[in-house]
């Protein structure tokens, strides 16, 4: 019965896939009409960055990116609402600890490089933030219960930093008459760098905190007994 259902679904989905493949084929067979590509590259010089993807993310379609930071924050808030973080892992042995001592600073350094290079080559806040997040994950796996994150109050400010700076810059530009996230000529580069730096930190901290998997504070205390883990709701 169950297998029959799976088979039936498989057949239906194969038909759907065939239909979609046909639609994609028909779409690609069309003469490429007006596309955003030409427009996006024609106005690239005005955006303050020379990497077209960064120009789309932080200038043309910056509003999407702001909301995407909000999505990331919403996921973390949801994770925090589910309870305190589980206890961490055992301390790593000397070999792993020595490796971690090398990898984490390197990841942070590489993150900084990716952030800067994003202005003119592939890179940017998300790639850099992901590296910072990876550094946090490695720290947590190697037995650092807080994954290198500060206490709860500071952590809360750090996770809102990205969307916060973004929204405040946008709102400030709106209040000064330029329109929301409409960068004044000549200042785009520095405003984008400011937003991206804040976003990098926020993304790194948010990803790490999401990996820790629960509200910071007493719940992450690694004391080996589990007795101090407060049970809050």
């Amino acid at each position: 019965m169950k297998r029959d259902l799976a088979l039936l679904l498989g057949i239906l989905l194969a038909l759907l896939a065939a239909l979609l493949l046909w639609a994609l084929h028909a779409t690609l067979a069309l003469e490429p009409g007006p596309r955003l590509a030409e427009l996006a590259s024609a106005r690239l010089e005005e955006t303050g960055v020379s990497n077209p993807v960064t120009a789309v993310l932080l200038n043309y379609r910056a509003y999407d990116t702001l909301l995407e930071l909000a999505v990331l924050l919403a996921a973390l808030l949801g994770i925090w609402s589910l309870g305190p973080a589980p206890a961490g892992y055992q301390r790593s042995g000397p070999a792993l600890a020595a490796l971690v001592d090398w990898i984490v600073p390197l990841a942070i350094l590489a993150g900084g490089y990716l952030l800067w290079v994003g202005g003119h080559a592939p890179g940017g806040a998300f790639q850099a933030g992901a590296l910072l997040g990876a550094a946090g994950v490695i720290l947590r796996l190697s037995g650092e219960p807080s994954a290198g994150l500060p206490g709860e109050p500071a952590q809360r400010w750090l996770v809102v930093l990205g969307a916060g700076v973004f929204a405040v810059v946008g709102g400030g530009l709106l209040a000064s008459g330029f329109g929301f996230l409409t960068y004044p000529p000549g200042q785009a580069k520095w405003l984008i760098l400011l937003i991206e730096s804040a976003a990098t930190v926020a993304i790194g901290v948010t990803l790490t905190a999401a990996y820790v998997g629960g509200r910071p504070g007493s719940g992450t205390a690694h004391n080996g007994t589990g007795q101090s883990r407060t049970v809050q709701r």
Binding site: P86, A87, Q90, L141, S142, H222, T225
Partner: peptide, 8 residues
């Protein structure tokens, strides 16, 4: 990769 502590 490493064992979890008994606290879990």
């Amino acid at each position: 990769p490493t064992e979890r502590t008994p606290t879990e």
